[in-house]
Nucleic acid binder design. Structure first.
Ligand SMILES: NC(=O)c1ccc[n+]([C@@H]2O[C@H](COP(=O)([O-])OP(=O)(O)OC[C@H]3O[C@@H](n4cnc5c(N)ncnc54)[C@H](O)[C@@H]3O)[C@@H](O)[C@H]2O)c1
Ligand SMILES: NC(=O)c1ccc[n+]([C@@H]2O[C@H](COP(=O)([O-])OP(=O)(O)OC[C@H]3O[C@@H](n4cnc5c(N)ncnc54)[C@H](O)[C@@H]3O)[C@@H](O)[C@H]2O)c1
Lengths: 210, 210
DNA sequence: TAATTACTGTTATTACAATAACATTGTTCG
DNA sequence: CGAACAATGTTATTGTAATAACAGTAATTA
């Protein structure tokens, strides 16, 4: 399998393309031109073609890309063959919203457990997943083969919790908290910082006004 | 006021620095060295200094940056003098989590209204804010001087709702939905795409494993 | 006071991403 | 057939961000 390093931005766009392509497929569209895909995302057709070039897929000339094939090729890049299991760490307001949302979808990424400290939640089903005590995290992570954690604990527990996740063998973390985390380079950390995004909007709105 | 264009990534980091600085201030720290601020975010001291250079702030040599001053300077860049008012569009699971979270904070950005279609929510308080009917959005946006929208409606209403927001005079949108949106260039659109972020984690986890 | 230290501020270089330019290839049709 | 077309695939250029190199300066000390 071609495992050359893709540009990070290309990986992001592939994820987005795939969602659009799945919609197209659902609408019975079998082929799509680079400029169509581009228009759907307000980017240029060149960008689309370049991204697709990176993953080594080729269309039938003049017919556009085969929607089904392209979905599969992107899947081959992004998805694991083995299912990747995901855990929610801290199933409060945000954790519940995310879990509920995911339960309604089906994908290669499955939320298979939640972890919390609150005794009212532990050993119960919360938003459709079983909630476990943080104390048992190492054993459950191994048992259920969980590789990815979605971190939605309060800010002041974030650093400590992250250490436990790493020790438990978690390989990737999506960080919803607004505190910077420290992980070894073998663990992929993705920041997902709502406050920063919102303040960025505020900055650009202000700038345009001024 | 110096309104030269800052690098987008610098704007993001300024938002992050400020949060850390506020923590430092709360802990009674009055000065901070570039390398300290850097260590707290796992970046280099040079990057910190360069960012601070961009905004034209200077420290007292050898004493580090004045925490209070730096917070204010960053505020002068990011915050508006006039308060910026924010609305939640679609106050479902995610919208409620966000609103509850923000109500617990104080900042220059205030959530002053929610909008929804659901008659059970309209004209009630939801998570601490008044929920209005989407039908009245233009008038309420003007009345309450709302400039920013947080978009948390279902995917299939996203495009249509966005048009209404633009017409109502919204100037910036933080898009939580997973569909690409079309806005005029005078409106700042910030994508905040959870699925892409999560799939990115999955990709890098898989890559490291393979 | 001159050398040393411990920082900051600026410029230069390198790396990464987006855009533009161009070459290529089936398809259509005069 | 072969020019014109309509699309893709590739290389070249430009723009943006990160890193590295270095210059400057207050405090410290011999
Ligand atoms: N809600 C939002 O919109 C929002 C926005 C930005 C950032 N965040 C961040 O996301 C995180 C969660 O936000 P929320 O609104 O869901 O908070 P919340 O208080 O509703 O939920 C936190 C949950 O974590 C659990 N918890 C506490 N300590 C824990 C620990 N050490 N280990 C495991 N679980 C623990 C709590 O019992 C609770 O269920 C916070 O760090 C917050 O800063 C949330
Ligand atoms: N919940 C998550 O973690 C999550 C994750 C990724 C993306 N999203 C996206 O965020 C959006 C909201 O997710 P959710 O889980 O809160 O869904 P939800 O169904 O709980 O909430 C949607 C809300 O929007 C209201 N609504 C519907 N149509 C509307 C319209 N035209 N105008 C105004 N309000 C309208 C509904 O009445 C409801 O209150 C969706 O687009 C979803 O794809 C959510």
């Amino acid at each position: 399998m071609k495992m050359m390093k893709l540009p990070e931005k290309t990986v992001e766009r592939l994820s987005i393309y795939r969602r659009t392509l799945l919609d197209c497929l659902a609408q019975g569209k079998t082929h799509i031109f680079s400029h169509e895909l581009a228009n759907l995302h307000n980017i240029t057709a060149v960008q689309v073609r370049r991204d697709i070039m990176f993953i080594g897929y080729s269309s039938m000339q003049r017919k556009g890309y085969d929607v089904k094939e392209l979905i599969d090729v992107i899947g081959g890049i992004i998805d694991s063959e083995a299912r990747q299991n995901v855990a929610i760490i801290g199933i409060g307001n945000l954790g519940r919203a995310i879990t509920t949302y995911f339960m309604g979808k089906r994908s290669k990424l499955n939320i298979v457990a939640a972890f919390d400290l609150d005794p009212n939640k532990i050993d119960r089903m919360v938003s459709g997943v079983k909630c476990y005590s943080m104390q048992n995290i190492e054993e459950i992570v191994k048992e259920k083969d969980i590789s990815i954690a979605i971190l939605t604990v309060p800010a002041d527990s974030a650093a400590g919790t992250t250490e436990r996740l790493v020790q438990a063998g978690i390989r990737g973390i999506l960080n919803f908290t607004t505190v910077p985390l420290n992980v070894p380079s073998s663990v992929h950390l993705e920041e997902y910082d709502m406050i920063t995004s919102l303040e960025k909007v505020a900055y650009f709105v202000k700038k345009q006004a001024g």
